[in-house]
Computed example of a mutant assay.
Amino acid sequence: MNSPAGDRPTNGGAPKGRPRSEAVERAILEGAMKLLEEGVPFAELSIERIARTAGVGKAAIYRRWSGKEALFVEVLRAAEPPEPPLPGTSMRDDLVVLLESLRRRGLANRGSAMLYTVHAQMKSNPRLWEEYHSTVVAPRHELTRQVLRRGQRDGELRTDLDLELLSDLFMGPMLVRAVMRPDGELPDLLAEEIVDTLLTGLRPPATPDP
């Protein structure tokens, strides 16, 4: 199928002087989602099939993504809620917001057959997992470390603790509940409970009055 008018490549690249069409990009993502919702396995989700479903040419996809792994990750990003803005009032408050975002992702995944299928297929594809990890998981992990680093700087957290380990300690319980235990409860105040429980033993000792 030919590319839509105005979106044809020029000399093998993107049209010069023209911004990429948001409508075309949205059509591609929705086409991929439609196929996933219909239960098409990732191995059968070819660029040709996605392009045909979206009503665009293959070149329109390759101008935006390097291949179906990168497109697949973008589908996940589009289907999940965006990263939340952090209040910045304290390390504790920022951690609660980050964990609450993971809790909501867990609830969304459970309520979406498409997302459940996507995550299940992703686990069996090393290249896809690597792409997802580098573009979604790693930035989220680094954001958590930044919050913890500020907490150490501001005296909210002991400075003798390893930030990599701390990030796993805070995020791990929520990830286990949200991803590894589909039947695990995700109550409204779970994020606060996890953060406050851990901070009880991680705050610096109180300085005695002179």
Rank of each mutant, 00 (worst) to 15 (best):
E37M: 01
R153Q: 14
R52F: 06
H119E: 12
A23R: 12
E37L: 00
S134L: 12
E37T: 08
P126E: 07
P187Y: 06
G111C: 06
L102C: 01
G151S: 02
L161E: 07
T197N: 12
A27P: 03
A51G: 12
R18E: 13
P204I: 03
W65D: 03
P9V: 07
E193L: 10
L157D: 00
L198H: 11
A108I: 11
T197C: 11
A32T: 02
E100A: 09
G17L: 11
G12R: 03
R49D: 03
P82N: 08
A113D: 13
M171Y: 06
W129V: 13
E100T: 13
L35W: 08
H133S: 14
G55H: 00
V118K: 01
L199A: 02
A108W: 00
N2G: 14
V24Q: 06
E74H: 11
D168M: 13
V179Y: 10
A32R: 00
R140G: 15
D168T: 10
D183L: 13
M180R: 12
I194P: 06
E80Q: 12
L29D: 04
S21Q: 05
N11W: 10
I61R: 08
S134N: 11
T89V: 13
A59C: 10
D94H: 07
G151W: 03
P204Q: 06
V96I: 15
G6E: 01
V96R: 14
L148P: 00
I61M: 06
A14G: 02
R145N: 05
L95V: 01
Y116N: 15
E131I: 06
T53P: 03
G151P: 01
Q152H: 05
Q121G: 13
A59F: 12
M91Y: 03
A5P: 05
R63C: 05
R181N: 13
P81G: 04
A178C: 08
I47N: 10
E192W: 09
R177A: 15
L128C: 11
L169K: 09
L102V: 10
T10V: 15
S66N: 12
Q146A: 14
P208C: 10
A79D: 04
Q146I: 07
A5N: 08
L86H: 06
R140I: 00
G106N: 07
R77P: 00
V195I: 09
P204A: 04
E131L: 09
M114I: 01
A23Y: 00
G17E: 08
R177C: 15
L148F: 02
G88F: 06
T197A: 15
R63K: 02
P139E: 08
